[in-house]
Each structure stands twice: as C-alpha cells, then as structure tokens.
C-alpha cells in the first residue's frame, strides 16, 4: 500500500490537469443524471463515453478492467435479479447505471492526487467556518491519520510477533486488545505532546 500516492496513477493528460473541485462536481452531476435517466440506450451511450474518457486519460484497458472487476459478480447478480423480476431492459438499466457511476468515480480518483483532493476539501470547508467548523482542526486530524497509519501498522506488527512467540497468533482477541490499548495510550502521549507545543485548539 503506497499511502503517499494512494490510488493515483500519473499520466500526462488533460483530465489529470483539470481542477479537483471541477471533477468532483462533474461526478455529482453525472451521478444524479444517471439516476433520473430511465432509458437503457442513453445509459449505454454514457457508459461508452466514460470508457472513452479512460482513453483520454491515457489509461490502458487493463486499468479500466481493474476498476470494474471487484464489482463484476454483484453486477451479474443484479442483472439476474432484474431479469427474474422484470425484463432484460430493466436489468440493463440497473447494471449500466452502476457501471457508469463506479467507472467515472474511479476515473476521478485515478486522475487526482490525494494531496490535491485534500487541498480542494480544505478550500471547500472555508465557508463552514461561520457554522463553527474549524478547518485547521480538521486539517490537523487529517495529517495525524496520515502520519499514524504507518506507526500503528508497526505496533500491529510488533503485537503479532509477540503473540506469535506465545503461540497466540490465531487468537483474534490476543492480537487486537494490545493493539487497541497501545493506540489509546499513544493518543494520550500525542495529545500531551501537541499541547506542550502550545497548539491552540480553540
């Protein structure tokens, strides 16, 4: 798992250069549109257009396939259910709808860096300041998570090794209780450390 880059795939394409906010808005618009369009022919045309966009973003067909593969058996089941309850047109509507939304959402994720997305989110939250939301606090929470995932992964590894030595490596409770308690203890230390550096949370 590469945390710094996430699911982002670097390519030189116009889609990669578009601002993150615009891509997210397009996703919202498309997501709404496909749920009000009941016609399978129009939906199939949209699906084809989304697939063309993968080409525009210079992604290989393998990447496109990798996005839809985890969903494949669900789509087959949904199609079968619709076929059984209604007819094949209804099945096609349901399946293409889901495929469009999932493929387009994956496209947004694949073409936008996590850091760029995070910046866009922080900008989008600025107006919420008047409602009592503090974007800096949320920013702190985000950076803490990104910093602590590798730290907790190390703790998890240590616990696993220690319980392995005791022959408890198949015992879920023996693996998770120490992990959680060490996380809670770490939280106290980190909070003290942040406050000792005069971080003002108010």
């Amino acid at each position: 798992m590469n945390l710094a880059s996430g699911l982002y795939q670097d390519r030189a394409s116009p889609l990669h250069r578009l601002p993150a906010g615009l891509k997210v808005l397009a996703l919202v618009a498309l997501g709404t549109a496909v749920f009000v369009i009941p016609d399978w022919q129009i939906l199939l045309a949209i699906l084809a257009a989304v697939m063309v966009l993968y080409g525009v973003a210079r992604f290989s067909p393998q990447i496109l396939w990798a996005q839809i593969r985890p969903l494949l058996w669900l789509l087959v089941v949904f199609f079968a259910v619709q076929l059984w309850l209604n007819d094949w047109q209804a099945g096609l509507v349901v399946v293409t709808r889901l495929a469009i939304v999932v493929l387009f959402a994956a496209l947004v994720t694949l073409t936008t860096r996590v850091s760029v997305m995070l910046e866009a989110l922080e900008r989008a939250m600025q107006p919420l300041r008047f409602m009592g939301v503090n974007p800096e606090k949320i920013g702190l929470a985000f950076s803490l998570v990104l910093r602590f995932i590798p730290v907790i992964a190390t703790v998890s590894h240590d616990v696993r090794e220690a319980q392995n030595a005791r022959g408890l490596n198949r015992n879920m409770l023996a693996l998770t209780v120490p992990l959680i308690i060490r996380t809670l203890k770490m939280a106290d230390d980190v909070a003290d450390a942040i406050e000792a550096r005069s971080y003002d949370s108010e």
Binding site: K137, A141, L144, I149, I152, L179, T183, A191
Partner: peptide, 17 residues
C-alpha cells in the same frame, strides 16, 4: 479539545490498519 482530535485521528488510523 486536542485530546478529542487525537483520539478521532488515531481511531481512524486504527480502522485503516
């Protein structure tokens, strides 16, 4: 307070792990 934020962040990391 700071403690709440840290707890929230650490449990989010824990979920990831």
């Amino acid at each position: 307070n700071t403690r709440d934020i840290v707890y929230i962040a650490l449990f989010a990391s824990l979920m990831a792990i």
